[in-house]
């Protein structure tokens, strides 16, 4: 049965508004400090997340108490990233070290649409604050379950950076909106690591065994013959992030003659890029379910 994503950040609207208000006058590091004491409780009560991360670190070769420490660090960085997202809504600024950004900048300056692929690693939402898309708008496909506080602030903060949200809807209206955005020469951004909206997938080698990546983003890119970029925003220090941009389509994918084989090649390229980033930042893998089994 296909897994359904609520796409909802923890906490109600009132709590999230309080957090934004606190972050207007408090350094993020103060909040991180208090959060550090709450993480063990989260590890105890979020059994599915704990188990998924335990399997992830075992897969990476960790054993014994090191695994518990690594799961703690993973949960801590996840908490930092959620806080940073609210800090941006509160008007806080972060610094970025750019790696490969010029490739997408070049594409932003040329006519025609492009596809940006996100994943549940790092803090992708901050890409909207640092990528300058010129005359193009970035249409970001998002899960429709977020609270009013998040949607309002996303629209306000990211809207000023030419980002438009497209919520995934059961009536498939998002498909028409994505298609229209590309036809207008804009950029579309969508997650490429979780199956949602469709069970169709491509099986790709990822961290030692096969995992299924959603077919949608890659079929879309193949059908529309789009340039495709993998974008990651990985946390380095309290107020500094590492923006990583990698081109997914290459000469090999372009040489594929059928739409399906081209899409499959794009999926394999993306899995390889994602694996490299996750190897570099293992604590920033935030798929809290059995990625290899359930996807």
């Amino acid at each position: 049965m296909e897994r359904q994503w609520s796409g909802r950040t923890d906490g109600g609207t009132r709590m999230q508004r309080w957090l934004i208000a606190i972050l207007r006058c408090t350094d993020v590091r103060v909040i991180y400090f208090f959060m550090a004491f709450a993480i063990p409780f989260y590890m105890i009560f979020n059994r599915q997340g704990y188990k998924a991360m335990r399997d992830f670190f075992v897969r990476r070769g960790d054993r014994g108490l090191r695994i518990v420490w690594h799961i703690y660090r993973n949960h801590f960085v996840f908490g930092e990233i959620i806080i940073d997202r609210f800090a941006v809504y509160a008007g806080r600024k972060f610094q970025f070290d750019n790696d490969g950004k010029e490739q997408i900048d070049d594409c932003f300056s040329k006519p025609g649409g492009l596809l940006m692929l996100s994943s549940h690693t790092g803090n992708y939402e901050l890409a909207g604050c640092t990528l300058i898309s010129g005359d193009k708008r970035v249409h970001a496909l998002v899960y429709a379950g977020e609270t009013e506080a998040i949607m309002e602030n996303r629209d306000r903060v990211l809207g000023s950076h030419s980002t438009v949200m497209i919520p995934v809807q059961s009536d498939m209206s998002h498909i028409f909106m994505m298609n229209a955005a590309i036809d207008e020469g804009d950029a579309v951004s969508m997650p490429a690591d979780r199956l949602f909206g469709s069970s169709k997938s491509f099986s790709c080698s990822f961290m030692g065994s096969d995992a299924k990546l959603p077919a949608g983003p890659f079929i879309f890119a193949s059908q529309k013959e789009l340039p495709v970029f993998a974008v990651f925003v990985m946390k380095k220090r309290a107020t500094r992030y590492h923006l990583i941009v990698r081109r997914v389509d290459d000469a090999n994918s372009a040489a594929e003659t059928s739409l399906r084989s081209r899409a499959a090649m794009l999926a394999r390229n993306y899995a390889s890029i994602l694996e490299n980033v996750v190897e570099q930042y293992p604590y920033q893998w935030f798929n809290y379910y059995d990625f290899w089994q359930d996807n």
Binding site: M172, H174, I175, F176, M178, N179, G197, S198, S199, K200, A215, G216, I219, F220, Q223, K224
Partner: peptide, 11 residues
């Protein structure tokens, strides 16, 4: 059919 198929029909 599902959402990916819808996309392919649009194209």
């Amino acid at each position: 059919l599902d959402s990916i198929d819808a996309l392919e029909l649009i194209v």
